[in-house]
Amino acid sequence: MSYRALAVTATHPDVIDPYHGIFNARSIRSLCSRGTTVDVVSPRPFAPPLGPYAEYRRIPRIAQTRRYEVHHPRFFYLLPKRLFYGLSGRSYARRVPEYVERTFPVPDLVHAYHVYPDGFGMLEYCDRHDLPLFVAVQGTLINEFSRFSRTVQARIRRTLRESEGVLCVSRALADRVDRICPTATSTVVPIGADPDRFPTGSADRIRRELDLPADETIVLFCGRFTTKKGIDELIDVLPAIDGRDVHVFFVGHDGRRRPALEREIVSHGLTEQTTVHHDLAPLALRRLYAIADVFVLPSHSEGRPTVIYEAMAARTAVIGTDVGGIPEQVADGETGYVVPPKDADRLRDVLCSLCDQPERQRQMGTAGYQRLLEQGWTWDAHAKRLESLHEEAIDA
């Protein structure tokens, strides 16, 4: 069945941040690759003439990717968010649908990659054209629901209630959605990773190119350098790698805890056993996944992290925390280990033990890879699930 979808997402890679919402771009790309026509709108705030956000003026109104155009209409996004998120959502709901009406033919459905402001902002447009609205639930908004104002909470509930489908990346998030809005039509639609994009067959060559010993255990962290991603626990664990045949790669895009991490690395004399990358290119990151023996993500809160799917695709053992959908991804004791969040002592024990067991690393990495395939946690399988739900709604 051929159909036309309007994808709306406040987070999508752009010239300012090429990694912002990259999983949304991959989801859209996977739909396009299966022949779906997708018009893409990724609204951006009006940029002030001066100050740290002035660079957003460089984002063009229309950007071209390899598979689709991305339109960047503007709306007013006011700071601080905790005070003005309601006003920002109202501006989005007024300005973005107006742009859509002027620019695109009416689609068969709207797929919003965030409940708020994307889904809320397109409610009246969908009502006006009698279109099904699908909203994706990825983590932060629902996990932090109680922190929002009553106005924003009411809008989130309304969007969940009125959407044709609420597509959650994990069972844990679907359960949260059901508690927030019992009448929401929620279902689990995982995202994933494609194993053929990770050069695991070239791992030995990549190690030689990076001047890494063949028998050295490579530990990889990939995420924002923030407290919520568990950087403070990793800082506490760092001294334990001193003297071990271990090299830790930290890869992140931003985050206030990066300077603290770098200071601790220097203070413990671990500059030869660690590497910190900021804004590493995707191809270079996939090379690190390919040589990694252990992937570690000690987050305090999550949906189902894409980076864990990527580690599984690269046959890498995973250490994650018992939050959100991570226990749904990591089979504890089989594909890796699940540890309590904010528990640096337990994290240290598990990480050091696994680093000392190369054969166990390989067994867990292989089991994780097989689990990824068996569960259908790939982008093509993700697109097939979306297509099935979309087509069912169009035919109804």
Rank of each mutant, 00 (worst) to 15 (best):
Arg179Phe: 08
Arg304Thr: 14
Val106Lys: 14
Ala396Asp: 11
Tyr337Arg: 10
Met312Pro: 01
Pro18Leu: 02
Cys181Leu: 09
Val152Phe: 08
Asp118Asn: 14
Tyr3Gln: 01
Glu391Cys: 07
Arg348Ser: 14
Gly255Tyr: 13
Thr335Lys: 09
Leu6Glu: 06
Asp254Gln: 09
Ile241Arg: 03
Glu144His: 14
Pro107Tyr: 09
Ile394Thr: 10
Pro259Lys: 08
Ser27Ala: 12
Lys229Pro: 02
Phe104Met: 06
Met312Asn: 01
Asp236Ala: 14
Glu310Cys: 10
Glu272Asp: 15
Asp196Cys: 08
Arg58Asn: 11
Gly51Pro: 05
Thr159Ile: 06
Arg315Glu: 14
Tyr3Arg: 07
Val8Tyr: 11
Ala292Asp: 07
Arg346Cys: 04
Arg157Gln: 12
Val169Tyr: 05
Asp242Trp: 11
Ser88Gly: 10
Val15Pro: 06
Gly21Leu: 08
Ser146Phe: 06
Phe46Ala: 01
Thr227Ser: 09
Gly252Thr: 06
Thr378Leu: 01
Leu283Tyr: 10
Asp345Ala: 15
Leu78Arg: 09
Leu109Ile: 06
Pro195Gln: 04
His71Met: 03
Phe120Met: 07
Leu79Ala: 05
Arg44Lys: 06
Ser149Asn: 09
Thr275His: 12
Glu144Ile: 02
Cys352Met: 11
Tyr309Lys: 00
Gly86Ile: 00
Lys81Asp: 13
Val318Asp: 03
Gln375Tyr: 04
Thr217Tyr: 08
Ala383Val: 00
Gln361Gly: 04
Asp349Arg: 14
Arg360Leu: 07
Phe46Ser: 01
Pro48Leu: 05
Ser42Glu: 12
Thr159Arg: 09
Thr185Leu: 07
